[in-house]
Amino acid sequence: MTLLIDSGNTRIKLGWCHPLTGVREDQAVSLHADQLDQLASWLEAAHAPLQTFANQKGVQALGVNVAGPQVQAQIDAAVRRLGLGPVRWLQAQEQVFGLHNDYEQASQLGADRWAALLGLSDLLAQEHPDEQGALLISFGTATTIDLLGPAQNGIRHFLGGSILPGPSLMLASLKQNTAQLPQAHGQTAAFPRNTQSAISTGVAAAQAGAVLRQWEKGRQHLGHSPLIFLAGGGRALAQQELSEQLHHHCRLIAIAPPTLYELDTPALRGLALFACRN
């Protein structure tokens, strides 16, 4: 078994993969850095007994980390306490597993974004036509909106993407940097009539507008409508607004609106590729 670790700015997502069979965890777990003492009990509950890990030779843990060196050191220590070998921390590459990274400097792409794009590229190869491009939107602490081109001769290109503050960060910034605005938990509305709703609507509209912009840029560049995949814990706030904006926009240009597909842990799927193929 190989432990899979996606260490983000807010949460640490954990899964596992059998490198020979490709069997994965039934459900990934999400922890804060101060909850890493629960790692052993989660592995047992997830039917990945520690002795299976401890008896394996070679790489036993794969991860990506964007939370900084302190959190990485905490994870390394927790993994060592399990009796596993050192974590192999991955960085973005120029090309691997049929995905080419078009970033000007490939290594500057966030490791978590790269792993998630690899996971989406693998999903597309399994379940969607090669000629279809796709947009991956991850609503985390930051929202990232990344475009994959269609496969040509077995290679897809990550064409680039945008970054903006995620929904929770937008909400928190209004509370922290204004004298009277609260941390909002209101419902979105066409014409908000209370402050909670006004803030939630504004944040949802900003997120949806950024996605719509990148989707339309992708449609113009590719010559077809890219598929849309949503990930990240903050997607619930923006999803309905995004659907409405897309439907309205597509009516104006007389095309069918895209389906919004949800992905729970694309970065762990990307890490599983390394576990199974390396």
Results as ranks from 00 to 15, higher is better:
5 I>F: 04
6 D>H: 06
9 N>C: 09
10 T>E: 08
23 V>W: 03
27 Q>Y: 06
31 L>V: 09
34 D>P: 09
40 A>K: 12
41 S>G: 10
42 W>Y: 14
43 L>K: 11
45 A>S: 11
47 H>W: 14
49 P>K: 15
55 N>F: 10
60 Q>G: 15
65 N>W: 09
65 N>Y: 07
72 Q>G: 12
74 Q>I: 07
74 Q>E: 10
86 P>R: 14
87 V>Q: 12
90 L>M: 12
107 S>C: 10
108 Q>C: 13
109 L>I: 15
110 G>Y: 14
118 L>P: 00
121 S>I: 07
124 L>W: 00
126 Q>Y: 02
130 D>C: 03
133 G>F: 01
136 L>G: 00
136 L>D: 04
136 L>M: 02
139 F>M: 02
141 T>H: 03
142 A>P: 02
144 T>P: 04
148 L>A: 00
157 H>G: 00
160 G>R: 01
161 G>C: 01
164 L>M: 02
165 P>L: 02
169 L>T: 02
173 S>Y: 01
184 A>T: 01
197 S>K: 06
207 Q>G: 00
214 Q>A: 06
215 W>T: 12
217 K>H: 13
220 Q>A: 15
223 G>N: 08
225 S>W: 00
226 P>T: 15
226 P>R: 13
233 G>C: 03
234 G>Y: 05
235 R>Q: 08
237 L>E: 04
240 Q>W: 11
241 E>H: 04
241 E>I: 05
243 S>V: 06
243 S>T: 06
244 E>A: 07
245 Q>C: 09
247 H>T: 12
250 C>R: 14
260 L>G: 11
261 Y>L: 15
263 L>I: 05
273 L>V: 12
274 F>M: 11
